[in-house]
């Protein structure tokens, strides 16, 4: 059954289409794919697994949380003044698009994340103070970025290295690392804000946004 699912998947079918084709539920298809994936991971030894070992429970019996949610996301969280935790999920359809753009097998493409220091900048992709790249293993889905500066604003891209050029395919929201020293003399005083309906400046959490914002 797994063979058939993989075959259908390679034909650009969605999970729900595969489920219909095989007479399975969507959950069953996902489960089989996950099992297949973890099996192939075991088989292909990764001596250089750069990710720290997780305390995530093993694939024990009765484990029913999904490994993938089918939503493209990259999220950066400040663990402290100098460390960010980044996690991501890249969905198959997105990989399929990327593969079509790069005209190669997605699995063969070197993936990476790029962190940008965008403090006090309206970031346009090229005006960061600096950026740093990390190469990522195929099956990694999270990363700790160390040795950052406190009280700076960061954005992280997930992307691909195509002929040594970084090609971003997913961008995180910005996150601020906390300041861990006394403020220097001369920082401007802060005026009170009365309007609470919209953030008046940077916030470290996101608001669910509806795509229709303006009215005629």
């Amino acid at each position: 059954m797994l063979e058939k699912i993989l075959q259908l998947k390679s034909q650009s079918m969605t999970i729900s289409q595969i489920a219909e084709e095989c007479g399975l539920t969507i959950g069953q298809v996902k489960y089989r794919l996950q099992k297949g994936k973890s099996k192939s991971e075991q088989e292909s030894h990764q001596p250089n697994h750069q990710l720290p070992q997780k305390a995530e429970p093993d694939d024990n019996q009765g484990w029913r949380l999904a490994s993938y949610y089918g939503r493209d996301i990259i999220k950066a969280m400040a663990q402290g003044p100098t460390v960010l935790f980044v996690y991501w999920e890249i969905t198959w359809p997105r990989m399929r698009m990327v593969a079509s753009y790069l005209q190669s097998d997605y699995r063969q493409i070197q993936k990476g994340i790029r962190i940008y220091d965008v403090t006090d900048r309206l970031f346009d992709g090229h005006n960061a103070h600096w950026h740093r790249d990390f190469q990522i293993q195929e099956e990694a889905n999270g990363w700790y970025v160390n040795d950052l500066q406190p009280d700076r604003t960061y954005i992280v891209d997930f992307g691909l290295f195509d002929q040594n050029r970084f090609c971003p395919i997913l961008r995180s929201e910005s996150v601020v690392t906390p300041r861990n020293t006394r403020a220097v003399w001369g920082e401007p005083l802060i005026e009170p804000v009365t309007q609470t309906s919209v953030p008046s400046w940077f916030e470290n959490f996101s608001s669910y946004s509806l795509y229709t914002k303006s009215t005629p």
Binding site: P52, Q53, K54, A55, E56, M77, A78, Q79, G80, P81, V83, F85, Y87, G142, P178
Partner: peptide
């Protein structure tokens, strides 16, 4: 900061 609630043991 956040390291008690976000580290290798619970970040998943």
């Amino acid at each position: 900061y956040g390291e008690v609630w976000l580290n290798e043991r619970n970040d998943w």
